[in-house]
């Protein structure tokens, strides 16, 4: 498995190559996609992208945690966490692509 990391720039480059917009406009549109997804999630909306996956927000109850270093008990406040559930198509493609 080759360890390469893609960033926003690579997504913008793909948009530029695919649609022919300038690199600047492509970068702004990539950002816009991420912003709309984030904003919906912050509003507690589930974001379901067919054949990609589902982003959803889960509420976690307050609990008592422990500082692993000192053993001290610390209260952990209730919080909202984001989970991503990949679609079957994505799971199949990742499994097939990384086989052997």
């Amino acid at each position: 498995m080759s360890e390469k990391t893609l960033t926003r720039m690579d997504l913008a480059e793909a948009v530029h190559a695919e649609v022919g917009l300038s690199r600047n406009d492509s970068a702004e549109l990539v950002e816009s996609v991420l912003t709309h997804i984030s904003d919906a999630l912050v509003q507690n909306e589930t974001v379901k992208i067919s054949s990609f996956g589902t982003f959803s927000v889960r509420e976690k109850a307050a609990r008592v945690g422990r500082n692993p270093k000192t053993g001290e008990e610390v209260p952990i406040s209730p919080r909202r966490v984001l989970t991503f559930r990949p679609s079957h198509l994505m799971k199949d493609r990742i499994a097939a692509g990384n086989k052997g």
């Binding site: 080759s2 390469k4 990391t5 893609l6 990539v30 994505m90």
Partner: peptide, 17 residues
């Protein structure tokens, strides 16, 4: 393209940050 590029990268074993 945004979503396909992410999926394709992961299918190739890459990370998308």
């Amino acid at each position: 393209t945004v979503f396909d590029t992410i999926t394709e990268a992961m299918a190739a074993g890459h990370r998308v940050e």
